[in-house]
Structures are given as structure tokens and as C-alpha cells.
Amino acid sequence: MSVEVEVVRETTDEVVGAVARLLPQLSSNASPPTHEDVDRLLRSEANTLLVARLDGLAVGMLTLITYPLPSGLRCRIEDVVVDDAARGHGAGAALTSEALRLAEAAGARTVDLTSRPSREAANRLYERLGFQGRDSKVYRFTVQS
């Protein structure tokens, strides 16, 4: 079984279903995405949605965000998730490696990501791929709707 990673370019029912199936494994607070939610994600020039497939089935996803700053082009990796049943087949490594390749091809100076300390396997993977921990704090402001 080999993992294939593709850039998602079109909002299809299959893609919306895959995101809806994978997202709860990443965040219990996330609402199920609608077709319009996924379409908005894909239409944004800043976003690149990657999907990992194992035997044709979407088993993982990652969003690469690319944005220019006065200090140079930067990228962030967000919403990385691999289906519980598909872990251990290299989908996370394949997704992250492809995101790094795309960031480098775009001319990004850095690629950042955050990961909870409890995600030990994911953190080991990121370190294996060359990510280094930074001495910083992450702050979040939640907009009340």
C-alpha cells in the first residue's frame, strides 16, 4: 500500500465528505463543513488543501497557508489529520513532505506549524522532518459570534 498525496482543486461531494469525516478526529469543536465551507477554503489563494489517499480512499488532509509579509513569504501548516484507522502507513509524513516541497517551490522563507504536546507521534514526525521547536507562546483570541 502506497500513499498518494494530491492538491485538491475542486469542491466535490467526495472531498466534502472526506473533510467532514476527518475533521472531528482533529477537533471536537469543529462544525461539520458544508459544500460552501470547503468551496471557500479552496477558492482562497492563500490556501492549498492536500489530501492523502491510501488505495484510493482519502485518509488524511493538511492545509498549507502561504502569505506574504514585509519580512518575506511565509507558510503555515494547519489542520493536519490522518484517519485513526490509517495511521502508521506514512500518510502524515507524505502530506507534510509535500507541503514542505510546495512551500519551497513558492519561495517561502519559513514554514511554521503548531502541535499539541499530547500528539507525541505527530511531534516526533515533525522533528524527524526537520522542524525545530521555538521558544514562543501561542496566543488565541476567540471571536464571539
Score class of each variant (00 low, 15 high):
Met1Leu: 13
Ser2Leu: 12
Ser2Trp: 01
Ser2His: 12
Val3Gly: 02
Glu4Lys: 12
Glu4Cys: 12
Val5Pro: 04
Arg9Phe: 01
Glu10Pro: 05
Glu10Trp: 09
Glu10Leu: 13
Glu10Thr: 15
Thr11Phe: 10
Thr11Lys: 09
Thr12Val: 10
Glu14Gly: 10
Val15Gly: 10
Gly17Phe: 09
Val19Asn: 09
Val19Arg: 03
Ala20Asn: 08
Pro24Ile: 08
Pro24Glu: 10
Pro24Trp: 07
Gln25Arg: 07
Ser27Glu: 04
Ser27Asp: 11
Ser28Tyr: 00
Ser28Arg: 12
Ala30Gln: 09
Ser31Asn: 07
Pro33Phe: 08
Pro33Glu: 07
Pro33Lys: 03
Asp37Met: 02
Val38Asn: 07
Val38Ala: 06
Leu41Asn: 03
Leu41Phe: 05
Leu41Gly: 00
Leu42Gly: 03
Leu42Lys: 05
Leu42Val: 06
Ser44Ile: 03
Glu45Tyr: 00
Glu45Gly: 14
Glu45Ala: 11
Glu45Ile: 00
Ala46Ser: 10
Asn47Gln: 07
Asn47Ala: 08
Leu49Asp: 02
Leu49Ile: 06
Leu50Val: 06
Arg53Lys: 14
Arg53Cys: 05
Arg53Met: 05
Asp55Asn: 14
Gly56Phe: 06
Val59Trp: 02
Val59Gln: 03
Gly60Ile: 00
Gly60Phe: 04
Met61Ile: 09
Met61Glu: 09
Leu62Arg: 06
Thr63Ala: 04
Leu64Asp: 06
Ile65Pro: 05
Thr66Met: 09
Tyr67Glu: 14
Pro68Thr: 01
Leu69His: 08
Pro70Tyr: 01
Pro70Val: 07
Ser71Thr: 12
Ser71Met: 09
Leu73Phe: 01
Arg76Asp: 15
Arg76Asn: 14
Arg76Tyr: 14
Ile77Ala: 10
Glu78Ile: 04
Asp79Gly: 13
Val81Trp: 08
Val82Tyr: 01
Asp83Val: 04
Ala85Gln: 14
Ala85Thr: 15
Ala85Lys: 11
Ala86Glu: 07
Arg87His: 07
His89Ala: 04
Gly90His: 03
Gly92Arg: 04
Ala93Gly: 14
Ala93Asn: 04
Ala94Phe: 06
Ser97Gln: 15
Ala99Tyr: 09
Ala99Asn: 11
Ala99Pro: 11
Ala103Asn: 07
Ala105Ser: 14
Ala105Trp: 07
Ala105Tyr: 01
Ala106Gln: 13
Ala106Phe: 02
Gly107Ser: 02
Ala108Arg: 06
Ala108Ser: 15
Arg109His: 14
Thr110Arg: 12
Val111Asn: 08
Thr114Trp: 06
Arg116Asn: 11
Ser118Ile: 09
Ala121Met: 00
Ala121Arg: 12
Ala122Trp: 00
Asn123Ile: 02
Asn123Val: 01
Asn123Ser: 04
Arg124His: 11
Arg124Tyr: 01
Leu125Cys: 09
Leu125Ile: 02
Glu127Asn: 01
Leu129Asn: 07
Leu129Asp: 10
Phe131Met: 10
Gln132Trp: 00
Gln132Leu: 11
Gly133Trp: 02
Arg134Gly: 06
Arg134Trp: 00
Ser136Lys: 12
Lys137Trp: 12
Lys137Ser: 13
Lys137Arg: 13
Val138Cys: 02
Phe141Arg: 15
Val143Ser: 04
Gln144Glu: 13
Ser145Met: 02
Ser145Gly: 11
